[in-house]
Design a protein around this nucleic acid. Structure first.
Ligand SMILES: [Mn+2]
Ligand SMILES: [Mn+2]
Ligand SMILES: [Zn+2]
Ligand SMILES: [Zn+2]
Lengths: 147, 147
DNA sequence: AGCATAAATGAGAATTTATCTCATTTTTTT
DNA sequence: AAAAAAATGAGATAAATTCTCATTTATGCT
């Protein structure tokens, strides 16, 4: 069952170790952006705290992990897999859920044009962008306090 | 000279104290988004560390301070003044500078439409959004290491 | 202006999150 | 299988933010 993670590790020529497999499996299994808190919970004491942070840095170094900060200041990580295309994030201000969102191609094109204007205006070289959306999940949410 | 900050405080009915005036003056004077580090430097020891954080929270509470995290994980704050319209941010990955950017009205309209689609799709109530752009300042920049 | 009350401050302790150190264990190479 | 290199675990350390509490300051009312 850990074939996926072993493959990922060997493809990036980093040595195959138990903590790395466990962290990758947890991320693959969860499938969504996850806070480091939640990740630690999922892993229990199978991976030492210091090792978890080290492994996450390793994954960032080989460019298969994306890290960002949620509006309530927790650190969120997500795997960047082959089929993982450019996307953005939607945050629930209540329960803290983070959802992947793909915006339309037309929109991304318009944003790119807009960014070109910004580059010129500020004499910047813009290499990346991020669109973040904040609100409340109105669905049946077990975690949302508001229900 | 501290009339601006006194006015801001009284308009929001929070008591007028020296630390609050000093922090507001520093923010007004700098005029741009500023990291808490830099703000502490500007203030020297005129305001205690604990008080600075408290005052920033006070300003957040009365909705005249915006706080966000820069890509290098420093906390950035900026005043929200009357004339301060909806805008976004551009970050230099090298020197850490944060620049206010207004995007075109057409773009914001398109983004709003895009967000409406997202709301429906995920059954969310989206109340706010943020566009962040990352890159390098190519201008003469005293702080950029690359030069 | 002076007093009473409520609110804010300063100093440092405590908490939280992340990194670092180093002896030991595991992985890789030979 | 042995040697060399790399990674790990446990705990120490560091940085950022919040908390505690005794003292000071601001406000509202004589
Ligand atoms: Mn994502
Ligand atoms: Mn701004
Ligand atoms: Zn929710
Ligand atoms: Zn720069």
């Amino acid at each position: 069952m850990s074939q996926n993670s072993r493959k990922i590790l060997s493809e990036h020529s980093v040595s195959i170790t138990n903590p790395r497999i466990l962290v990758l499996e947890a991320l693959l299994d969860f499938g969504n952006p996850i806070t480091i808190d939640e990740l630690q919970l999922k892993l229990g004491d199978s991976v030492a705290k210091s090792t978890l942070y080290r492994v996450l840095n390793d994954l960032k170094k080989i460019n298969i992990l994306n890290e960002f900060t949620s509006p309530d200041n927790s650190t969120v990580v997500e795997l960047i897999l082959e089929d993982h295309s450019h996307h953005h994030h939607l945050f629930c201000s209540d329960c803290g859920e983070v959802i992947d969102v793909e915006l339309s191609e037309e929109f991304e094109i318009m944003l790119t044009k807009e960014i070109q204007k910004v580059q010129k205006k500020f004499n910047f070289e813009i290499t990346d962008h991020r669109v973040e959306m904040f609100g409340l999940c109105t669905e049946e949410c077990a975690n949302c306090k508001k229900n």
